[in-house]
């Protein structure tokens, strides 16, 4: 799944979860193919983000797990303070979880 701003949504993408407007009303169910008309409607109703199936758009700034972990190690390379090291573990956990979610959905 991938969460994208409405401006990057194109017809043919499929919703991964319900599309909800700012008042919490469900505008569209999950697994639905998005059409041009729907995009216009979402725009009118002030929807700003939609989560779609798969990873359809390559975001140039996105890093993979190895890159994230490598950079994390670099940032913490001079750290010995105990609390900071625990914060580093929290970030690692967050990263593992984030990438696990992405890969399990891809299968």
């Amino acid at each position: 799944m991938q969460r994208l701003p409405l401006s990057m949504i194109t017809p043919g993408m499929r919703t991964f979860e319900e599309v909800i407007d700012s008042q919490g009303r469900v505008l569209c169910g999950k697994g639905v193919e998005i059409t041009g008309e729907m995009i216009e409607k979402f725009k009118e109703l002030g929807v700003s983000y939609i989560t779609v199936e798969g990873t359809v758009v390559k975001l140039p700034w996105e890093k993979n797990l190895e890159e994230e972990l490598g950079e994390l190690e670099y940032r913490f390379s001079e750290v010995s303070e105990e609390t900071l090291l625990q914060i580093k573990e929290i970030i690692k956990e967050l990263l593992y979880e984030k990438f696990k979610k992405v890969s399990s959905e891809g299968r």
């Binding site: 950079e71 940032r75 913490f76 001079e78 303070e81 609390t83 900071l84 914060i87 580093k88």
Partner: peptide, 24 residues
Amino acid sequence: ILIHARGYGKTLEDKLPPFQPQSL
């Protein structure tokens, strides 16, 4: 500190700025 630790954005500090544990 948390933003530096997460590595979001970039400042003169490319590692972590000095941390003050008493903040917690």
